[in-house]
Design a protein around this nucleic acid. Structure first.
Length: 614
RNA sequence: GGGGCGGUAGCUCAAUUGGUUAGAGUACCGGACUGUCGAUCCGGUGGUUGCGGGUUCGAGUCCCGUCCGCCUCGCCA
C-alpha cells in the first residue's frame, strides 16, 4: 500500500515539485474523457488529483481512474504542482494539485446511500443515523468530534493543574431507586438480583472524598431511563467533580475558573465574574430556576394592586389562600410582565395565542393590555384597570407603546406559566441574542439558595430538590437539626448549599456542599420518609463511610453534551454524540435494543413476559 | 402515559385537493468530452406511496388501527 506522506488538508504551493502520497475517500470525480479529476478527502481536508495522459499516465491507470466513484478509498502517489486550471479559493489546498503517477484502489464502495460531500440536500436525521459512519465523514460532523475532543483535553488539563485525580467509578452499580428510572442489569451469580447503571457517580465520588482522594474528576457516562428531549439523551456525559475541605465558595471559585478557561480556549471569550442570584429571585423575577438573563422582561407580582380592581378573575384568584406564606404554591397571585414596544411588535394573532400557550402549563389565560401613544390603556380589561392606572404605571414603569400581560392563578401555576410565556414573548419580539458562535453574549449566572425540600405534587411527600446528600447551607444547619419534621413552614424554608450554573437560560452545571455528618444525613432520610431500616438497606455503605472520618466536601457536575452544543450552536443533542439514540432509545445503526436467545436469559434467571419481541 | 407534526424512486421533494400509465432533481448504469472544481451534454435503470384494514366505480390523497421518526407536556432526586 502507498502509505501517505501528507494528509489531504496539508499541501500548499510551498510543496510544489515534491513527490507525495495521499490516502483518502473520493469526494467527487470529474471525468473529461481524456482527462480526469478526483477530489480526495480525509478528516483534514480535500486535495485535487489530476490524471493527465500528457504527464505519463498509462492507459490502464486512466481507465482505472475513470472508474472511480464517490466514497471509493484510494491511495495515490504523484507530484505536487500549481493548478493549471487556476486556483480554487474554496479549498485550503486550492492552489495546488497532484499529478498522479500511481493509483491503488484500497476499497471499492457499493453505491453509497447518501454522500457526505456537503452538496445537495442532506437526508433526514433518521436515515443518516442508520449510516452513522457515512454521516460522520461529513466535515461538519468531524468538526463536532474535534470540538468535543478539545473540550475533553482542556477539562483534563485544568483539573490536573488544580490537583484533581481522574478516577473511574463502576458502571455496574447498586440500584438506589430514588429519582430517575434506572436501567437495570440482571446478575448471573445471584439469581433475582440486579445491578443498576448509575444516574451519576454521586455516592462513589463522596466515598472517594472519605477515601482521602481530596479532589476527584471524571468524564463519565450517566444513564437515566426517562423520555428524552431535543437536549436530553437517556445516556449522556458529565464532567463530574468533587473537592474535600471546602465550602460552597471554594467550589464556585474553582468552577468559575474552569468556565473561564474553557470558554477562553474554545471560543476566545473571556467570561466575566459570574453574578449570583437566589432561587427566590429567579422564581419571582423570571418564573424559572434557570433564568435567561440575556434580555429583560422581568415579571412583577401585582397582587396588591389587582386586589383594588373589580376584575372578577383577579379577585377570585386572590381570594385563594391569602393567609398562606408568601411563596406557598397554592396562594393566589396576579403576575404582570411589561413588554416594551409590544404594542407595535406583538400582533393580535400572537397575543391571542398566549392563552392556549399558558393553558399548557395549567393557567386559565393571559389578559393583554396595551399602552397607547396617549398613555392610556387599550383593549381587553383596559376599562377595569382605570382605577389602578396610577399604581400600575408606577409599579411597572409603563411607557407608551408597552404591552402588559397578566396572569392570575396560584403562585406555582402563575409563576411557571409567566416564566414560560416570558421566553415565548422574547422569541416573538426577536430580542433573544444568538449565542457565542455569532458573537452574541454568553450570559452566565449562579443560582443559589435552593430550598432543601419540596412537596411531591402527587404523593404530598417531601422530596429533596437537588438530591438527598445535599447539605443545608452552613447558617441553616442548626435550624435544620432542631426542626420538627412535621413543621411545614420551617422545613419549606430550609435553604440548601446547592448551586447551579445557568448559561443563557440553560442549566449547564449543578452541585452542592454534601452532608458529611451522619446525624444530618439520617435526619434527611427521615424527613424523606425513610425509616432507619430502609435508609440502612439502601445507603448503609454511605452512612458507614460518613461515620469513619468524612471530610467536609462539595462538588458539582457539568453536562458535557450541553457544553458542546453551546460551542457548536446546535440545539440538538444528537448532533454532538458520535452514536446517539432515538427518542425511544433505539440505536438505528446497530439496531439496539434487540431480543436475546432464551439461553442467555436463562443464564441470568430472567423470563420475558413481553409478547414475542422483534 | 398524553398532545402535535411527518413517512411517496437509494436520497431530497412534487403529484392541480378522490380521477387516465405517480413526476422532477440528484445518485447509479451506458455513451460523448484534455482544465474541471456542485463539470457539461445525450440516453437509460429505478416505486408493495411505512404496514394492515375500511369507504368508494376509482385512494398517494378520505376514515380506523398499527409501526417508525421528530417536537412537546408529564417525567428527568
Amino acid at each position: 500500500m502507498l502509505i501517505r506522506t501528507h494528509t489531504c488538508g496539508q499541501l500548499r504551493d510551498s510543496n510544489v515539485g515534491a513527490t507525495v502520497r495521499l490516502n483518502g475517500w473520493v469526494n467527487s470525480y470529474r471525468d473529461h474523457g481524456g482527462l480526469a479529476f478526483i477530489d480526495l478527502r480525509d478528516r483534514f481536508g480535500i486535495t485535487q488529483l489530476v490524471f493527465d495522459p500528457g504527464d505519463g499516465v498509462t492507459a490502464e491507470m486512466m481507465d482505472a481512474a475513470r472508474k472511480l466513484r464517490n466514497e471509493d478509498v484510494i491511495a495515490v502517489e504523484g507530484k505536487v504542482r500549481i493548478r493549471e486550471g487556476g486556483e480554487n479559493p474554496k479549498l485550503a489546498t486550492g492552489k495546488v494539485e497532484i499529478v498522479v503517477t500511481s493509483l491503488e484502489v484500497l476499497a471499492k464502495t457499493d453505491n453509497p446511500p447518501f454522500l457526505p460531500d456537503g452538496m445537495g440536500k442532506l437526508p433526514g436525521e433518521e436515515f443518516r443515523m442508520g449510516y452513522r459512519y457515512i454521516d460522520l465523514r461529513r466535515p461538519a460532523m468531524q468538526k463536532v468530534l474535534g470540538t468535543r475532543h478539545k473540550l475533553y483535553q482542556v477539562t483534563r488539563k485544568y483539573f490536573d493543574e488544580n490537583g484533581f485525580l481522574e478516577i473511574e467509578t463502576p458502571i455496574l452499580y447498586k440500584s438506589t431507586p430514588e429519582g430517575a428510572r434506572e436501567f437495570i442489569v440482571p446478575s448471573r451469580h445471584v439469581p433475582g438480583t440486579f445491578y443498576a447503571l448509575p444516574q451519576s457517580p454521586q455516592l462513589f465520588k463522596q466515598i472517594l472524598m472519605v477515601s482521602g482522594c481530596d479532589r476527584y474528576m471524571q468524564i463519565c457516562r450517566c444513564f437515566r431511563d426517562e423520555d428524552p428531549r431535543a437536549d436530553r439523551q437517556a445516556e449522556f456525559t458529565q464532567i463530574d467533580l468533587e473537592m474535600s475541605f471546602v465550602r460552597r465558595d471554594q467550589v464556585m471559585e474553582m468552577m468559575e475558573g474552569f468556565v473561564r478557561r474553557l470558554w477562553g480556549e474554545m471560543t476566545g471569550y473571556t467570561v466575566p465574574p459570574i453574578q449570583r442570584m437566589t432561587y427566590r429571585e429567579a422564581m419571582e423575577d423570571y418564573g424559572i430556576d434557570r433564568p435567561d438573563t440575556r434580555y429583560g422582561l422581568k415579571i412583577k407580582d401585582i397582587s396588591e394592586i389587582a386586589a383594588k380592581t373589580e376584575i372578577t378573575f383577579f379577585k377570585e384568584t386572590l381570594e385563594k389562600g391569602q393567609d398562606r406564606p408568601r411563596f406557598n404554591s397554592k396562594r393566589g397571585v396576579v403576575k404582570a410582565m411589561v413588554v416594551p414596544g409590544g404594542a407595535e411588535k406583538l400582533s393580535r394573532k400572537m397575543t391571542d395565542g398566549y392563552t392556549p400557550f399558558v393553558g399548557g402549563f395549567g393557567a386559565g389565560g393571559v389578559a393583554v393590555v396595551k399602552v397607547n401613544a396617549a398613555g392610556a390603556f387599550e383593549t381587553g380589561i383596559a376599562k377595569h384597570l382605570e382605577v389602578v392606572k396610577a399604581d400600575l404605571f408606577a409599579a411597572l414603569s409603563l411607557k407608551p407603546g408597552d404591552t402588559v400581560l397578566f396572569i392570575a392563578d396560584t403562585y406555582s401555576v402563575a409563576t411557571k406559566a409567566m416564566g414560560e410565556l416570558r421566553q415565548k414573548v422574547a422569541r416573538d419580539m426577536g430580542i433573544v441574542p444568538k449565542p457565542g458562535a455569532e458573537g452574541g453574549p454568553w450570559n452566565f449566572l449562579w443560582v443559589v439558595d435552593f430550598p432543601m425540600f419540596e412537596r411531591n405534587k402527587d404523593t404530598g411527600k417531601w422530596v429533596a430538590m437537588h438530591h438527598p446528600f445535599t447539605s443545608p447551607r452552613d447558617d441553616q444547619m442548626q435550624a435544620f437539626l432542631d426542626a420538627d419534621t412535621e413543621d411545614e413552614v420551617i422545613i419549606e424554608g430550609i435553604v440548601s448549599a446547592g448551586y447551579d450554573i445557568v448559561l443563557n437560560g440553560q442549566e449547564i452545571a449543578g452541585g452542592s456542599v454534601r452532608i458529611h455528618d451522619r446525624a444530618v444525613q439520617s435526619k434527611v432520610f427521615k424527613l424523606l420518609g425513610m425509616t432507619p431500616e430502609q435508609a440502612k438497606e439502601k445507603f448503609s455503605f454511605l452512612l458507614e463511610a460518613l461515620s469513619y472520618g468524612a471530610p467536609p466536601h462539595a462538588g458539582i457536575a457539568f453536562g458535557l453534551d450541553r457544553l458542546v452544543m453551546n460551542f457548536l450552536g446546535t440545539d440538538n443533542i444528537r448532533d454532538v454524540i458520535a452514536f446517539p439514540k432515538t427518542q425511544t432509545g433505539a440505536d438505528l445503526l446497530t439496531k439496539a435494543p434487540s431480543p436475546v436467545p432464551a439461553n442467555q436469559l436463562r443464564d441470568v434467571h430472567i423470563q420475558s413476559i413481553a409478547p414475542a419481541a422483534g
